[in-house]
Nucleic acid binder design. Sequence first.
DNA 1: CTAGGGCTTCCACTGCGCTGGAAGGTCAAG
DNA 2: CTTGACCTTCCAGCGCAGTGGAAGCCCTAG
Lengths: 141, 141
Amino acid sequence: MRIGQLAARTGLTTKTIRFYESAGVLPAPARRPSGYRDYDEDAVDRLAFVKAAQAAGLSLAEIREIITVRASSGAPCQHVLALLDSHAADLDRRIAELTALRADVERLRSRAGTLDPATCSPAAVCQVIPADVVAQPVPTT
Amino acid sequence: MRIGQLAARTGLTTKTIRFYESAGVLPAPARRPSGYRDYDEDAVDRLAFVKAAQAAGLSLAEIREIITVRASSGAPCQHVLALLDSHAADLDRRIAELTALRADVERLRSRAGTLDPATCSPAAVCQVIPADVVAQPVPTT
DNA sequence: CTAGGGCTTCCACTGCGCTGGAAGGTCAAG
DNA sequence: CTTGACCTTCCAGCGCAGTGGAAGCCCTAG
């Protein structure tokens, strides 16, 4: 099938599918004489795997690595399990960070009612946010 | 004081301080005849505010907006409170998403032990990650 | 024959908060 | 006078997962 139909069947855009090919998570398909990409059914399965792995929080780089392991040394189960463990640990850390941040924000919120706007110095901008907020900046990852 | 000393006193780099100026969260300071930036004590307070606001999860754009409100219409308390509320709601959403994702990963992990590697098809890459993973991809924001 | 929809490539851009480096000016100590 | 630390500007790039657009080819229907 051509890329448009693959896109329709997977819910991705043609742009994204070409991007996945360049990112190494989808093998380059056969080409028709016209130069059009010509996909087989495996491509649908592969894209389903990519979506599922993304939903499990894996990056395209990690997904590519899994695929490489699979291609070179058979079942990547151990590798995948290690990745999942590492991601679970990441998630625990991030959840803890965000929860702490949530508590700090709540603390600021509830403290705000006790403040007198007149005591707010210009250089400090706003005393609702004091200089001793506890939580560290949240890493985006 | 010059930018290097301000950096030393705030724990930021000179690069970051110049970047903050260009981002509109730190006013352009006076200049010496040499062209060197010459900061006063207020700059220390301002940078402390920026750090605290960042620690509270605010973006530089939001911090700049708070500063603008402060400069134009006095105390930005209401604005800041609204921002904090909105961020608290964001945090609740993100924590819920990550918690759901964490549960999904755990589910995959524990299910993995029951699988037979021999039933793993090449196109699907790895059956540890099946196509019906529930959670949606986590938005980075 | 022409219009259109689909396909190709390539390059640039998004958001965010910096960080690195190049090329050059300034200033105090030795 | 020279060295070296410090400062200036500007331009580029990171990571991530795409998205947008331009220029041009392929194919089919009317």
